[in-house]
Design a protein around this nucleic acid. Structure first.
Lengths: 206, 206
DNA sequence: ATGATAAGTAAACACTCGTTTACTGTAGTG
DNA sequence: CACTACAGTAAACGAGTGTTTACTTATCAT
């Protein structure tokens, strides 16, 4: 309800993203907001609840983004290939938009970092990381590319290898953007990679 | 000297790799070895010293591996291109060996995970992660590929983009191998990627 | 046998942790 | 004005933190 609740959530996420859940104390969160930890317990009943609300928020944001881009990100396994109309330009703009979210949007970037720090001790988080950031996108692109090969848009090859070629630079450039020095050119490199990829793998019509 | 000291180091690393440095207590490390924490202080003067010895060990291992493979991994900036004799087969076997180290070797895998968990709060660790696992290898392969293009071994193109194409799948597959389910085929996928890469980018002599 | 050295235990140290409790303002409503 | 609900503080709670201390064993060379 109040916006103190929201400030607590965002501040906690910022700290969780840098130090990890266990290493962040309730006092530290409260102190950063200029209040005592007793006051924080008026808004959340435990430290764990803050974490849970953050995850809840991300799930909601993720569904909204998936719906907006017509990408069945949550349940693409069951969906009977609704992406028949996807074009390479769609894929390009969608990919760049995703990259911006995970590297420039405060919530997206901090949540991704928090997930990175919690993946080895929290199985639920590990699943999320694989589904949304690692294996999931590769499998999704694989299905997409297989379909586009059948339609003659892409040259025929191993669709899983092709999906790996397309997506892996996205993943690596996210990590590189976390280093304070080279945050600028990551976006340009990714753009160049995608255009290069399209040019190399598109069937040329004369 | 003693092997208790070694067991402490490896046990601590295993825990640091799962939970992060701050979340692991000295009692937990000692308890896992069936002794009290007081005993542990006979071997290390602080928890931080254990961490420092681990890092020291990795630096040493890293130098050994680099020397064995004739890869000036630490200081490739200053070295005046000593890799003139590198062949694509060398690169392939070196890459697969590196992948095995980061995913299958206990020390390599655990250290990499620990680095992943500490990268956002420890600038020294962040530098290491970039130099050894992210930006470093890309820049190294970029120099290598530029040289091989000049020698007519590789087709001419943007060497940085090509380095990204080659190395990024390596990086993504490491992350995917952390998920308990698909640890088997990562190595096969990487092999297929490298062979595919070589075939696509080599100048064909008739 | 004796003394030295290393490796262990158990307990205490000062401090921090997440959480709860008792209490203080302060705003808005009848 | 009295009453209620809310948001805050300060302090205490028991448990756990990294580290130190006093004390006990066991090994081993002299």
């Amino acid at each position: 309800m109040s916006d103190t609740r929201e400030k607590i959530l965002l501040t906690a996420l910022r700290l969780f993203a840098r130090d990890g859940y266990e290493a962040v104390s309730v006092s530290a969160i409260a102190g950063m907001l200029g209040m005592t930890k007793g006051a924080l317990y008026r808004h959340y009943k435990s430290k764990r609840e803050i974490f849970d609300r953050i995850v809840e928020r991300m799930v909601q944001l993720d569904n909204e983004r998936a719906r907006k881009h017509d990408v069945p990100e949550e349940t693409f396994d069951q969906s009977p290939l609704a992406y028949r109309s996807a074009t390479l330009d769609n894929i390009k703009s969608f990919t760049l938009s995703q990259f911006r979210f995970w590297t420039e949007d405060d919530f997206g970037r901090d949540f991704r970092k928090m997930v990175t720090l919690e993946q080895y001790r929290n199985p639920e988080i590990a699943d999320w990381q694989q589904k949304v950031l690692a294996d999931g996108p590769v499998s999704y692109m694989e299905d997409l590319f297989r379909e586009m090969m059948a339609q003659g848009v892409l040259k025929s090859s191993n669709p899983r290898l092709l999906a790996l070629d397309f997506y892996a630079p996205f993943y690596l450039l996210i990590s590189m953007s976390d280093a304070p020095s080279n945050g600028e050119n990551a976006m340009d490199l990714l753009t160049a990679h995608i255009e290069n990829f399209i040019e190399r793998n598109t069937v040329t019509r004369k």
